[in-house]
Computed example of a mutant assay.
Amino acid sequence: MAPENTLASLEAAIALGAEAVEFDIRTSQDGVLYVHHDATVDRTTNGTGRFADLMSFEIDQLDAGTWFDTRFAGERVPRLDTFLDACAGRIATYAEIKDADPAVVRDMLARRGLLSTAWTFSFDQSIRAQTRAKVPDFRRMVLFQHVGTIERAVALSAHILEFHADDLTPERADAAREAGLITQMFYGGEDRAVFEHAVRCGIQQMNIDHVDIYREVEAELIATAD
């Protein structure tokens, strides 16, 4: 509905009634934190180059909307502080850290009253280790495809366990909840059968693009059960 990792996409999520927003965090060459996914700016802006090599004044000038639709021309790569200000009091936050100090991210969330409902994850193993060691009060998510068992997720003191369509079973979802974990599922598509499976498994949080389709499926299953 809107270009990813922008204030426009945040507003679209809030308008849809999403309960949380997932975003990615990177750091500029001069140490400013931004909301951006890729290691380069080429795909989602009118610029080129590695994100970590760019100064903040250069990033601030990039157009992050036109690639998606000309209606979003002039949309910027948001600084993390601006993005979090727009979230405060309105929506919970799922901060995926691509390249940033987790302690700095944690403190930025805390200052805005967002920490208690926030959680984090990183595909970078060193960042995951830093998060466990430096900010244990920052709720952490792990992937089932990484940990392999419910027991391993518990041993890592995880708070949230994320499944994918190919590893979600009712038995695993039940076991995760019984172990005190919050269950989450990531799915980037719009296959109603996948959404139906998630609902039947009792998944508590959905990390998805197509919120509207998911809610239709959920409502249909609830109506059928009644």
Rank of each mutant, 00 (worst) to 15 (best):
M1L: 09
M1G: 15
A2F: 03
E4C: 04
E4I: 11
L7V: 06
S9N: 05
S9K: 02
E11K: 11
E11M: 07
A12I: 01
A13R: 00
A13E: 00
I14S: 05
L16G: 05
A18W: 02
V21R: 01
E22P: 00
D24V: 06
I25A: 14
T27K: 15
T27V: 13
G31H: 12
V35E: 11
A39L: 08
T40F: 07
T40V: 13
R43M: 05
N46V: 12
T48A: 15
D53L: 07
D53K: 05
L54Q: 03
S56P: 04
S56Q: 12
S56N: 13
I59W: 07
L62C: 03
G65T: 13
F68A: 06
F68E: 03
D69C: 08
D69G: 07
T70M: 06
T70E: 14
A73K: 12
G74F: 11
G74W: 11
G74M: 09
E75R: 03
R76N: 07
V77E: 02
R79S: 05
A86S: 13
A86M: 08
A88M: 07
G89Q: 12
G89W: 11
I91Q: 11
I91W: 10
T93E: 14
Y94Q: 05
Y94A: 14
A95S: 15
A95G: 14
A100C: 12
A100G: 12
A110Q: 13
A110D: 13
S116G: 03
T120Y: 02
T120M: 04
F121N: 03
F123W: 10
D124Q: 13
Q125F: 05
I127E: 10
T131H: 07
R132P: 00
A133V: 05
V135F: 06
V135D: 06
R139C: 15
R140M: 15
V142Y: 03
L143Q: 10
L143H: 13
F144N: 04
Q145N: 10
V147T: 09
G148S: 09
A153K: 03
A155L: 01
L156V: 02
A158M: 12
H159N: 12
I160S: 05
I160Y: 15
L161Q: 04
L161V: 09
D166E: 08
D166I: 01
T169D: 10
E171P: 00
D174Y: 02
D174V: 01
E178S: 07
G180D: 08
G180P: 08
G180F: 07
L181K: 10
I182N: 01
T183E: 13
Q184W: 07
Q184T: 09
M185N: 01
F186P: 00
R192M: 11
R192P: 04
A193W: 01
V194C: 09
V194G: 06
H197C: 05
A198F: 06
C201H: 07
C201L: 08
G202Q: 09
G202F: 09
I203D: 04
I203A: 03
Q205V: 15
M206S: 04
D209S: 09
H210S: 12
H210Y: 15
H210P: 02
V211F: 15
R215W: 12
R215C: 02
V217D: 02
L221R: 02
L221I: 11
A223D: 06
A223Y: 02
A223Q: 11
D226P: 07
